[in-house]
Computed example of a mutant assay.
Amino acid sequence: MKALMIIAALAGVVATTSAFAQTPAPTDSSQASQPAAATQVASNDTVPTVAPGGWVPPYGQAVHEKTRAEVYHELVQAEQDGQLAYLNSTLYAH
């Protein structure tokens, strides 16, 4: 039983180590001076730049940030439409 568990563990280690393997270093001396990350890739200028860890809108569309006046207007409109009363009676009734 222990031998079977050891074999399964070794098979798992062998299968997953290839996922963390790095690409081999170039043997040509002209390519050795340039890092692999320096390769130029075509860029799409329509995609907005996002800080690391930031939220990316769906399909790369820009999101309009609302002003306080716009948010207040939406709140007043939701009160007049009855949306807030409906939410309070269904979601927040507990």
Rank of each mutant, 00 (worst) to 15 (best):
Y72D: 10
D28I: 07
L91P: 04
D81P: 00
A21H: 08
A85K: 05
V63S: 03
L87R: 07
L84D: 00
K66N: 13
Y59I: 08
M1C: 05
P48E: 08
V76I: 15
A9N: 08
G54C: 03
E74C: 01
Q83F: 03
I7F: 14
E79F: 06
A8G: 12
V13H: 05
A32W: 12
P57F: 08
G12L: 10
Q83W: 01
T67E: 04
T27S: 15
T46Y: 09
S33C: 08
V41W: 07
T27N: 11
A9Y: 10
P24V: 14
P26W: 02
Y59G: 04
G60C: 07
H64Q: 08
E74W: 04
D45M: 13
V13D: 01
R68Y: 12
G53D: 04
Y86H: 08
A25Y: 11
T90M: 11
L87K: 04
A37F: 14
T16C: 10
A19D: 09
A78F: 02
D45E: 13
A19W: 09
V41R: 11
V56I: 13
F20K: 06
H94M: 06
Y59E: 15
S29L: 13
T49M: 12
P48L: 12
A19R: 08
K66A: 14
Q22L: 14
Q31R: 12
Q61N: 08
S43L: 13
A69M: 09
T49S: 15
T17Q: 11
A38Y: 03
A9T: 10
M1K: 04
K66D: 06
E65C: 10
R68V: 10
W55V: 15
A69Q: 12
M1V: 03
E79K: 11
A21E: 04
M1R: 07
D28S: 06
Q40Y: 11
L10R: 05
T27Q: 13
A78C: 00
Q31C: 08
I6K: 15
Y92C: 01
Q34M: 14
E79N: 13
D45N: 13
P52D: 10
A15C: 00
T27H: 10
T49E: 11
E74F: 01
Y86R: 04
A25E: 11
V63F: 02
A25N: 12
L91W: 08
G60E: 06
P57E: 07
V63M: 06
S43C: 07
S29Y: 06
L91F: 13
V76P: 01
A37Q: 12
V47L: 15
Q22H: 05
A93R: 06
G12D: 03
G53F: 02
P26D: 00
A11M: 12
K2N: 15
P58C: 04
T39K: 15
S89Y: 05
Y59K: 14
G82T: 01
A36F: 11
G53N: 00
G54K: 04
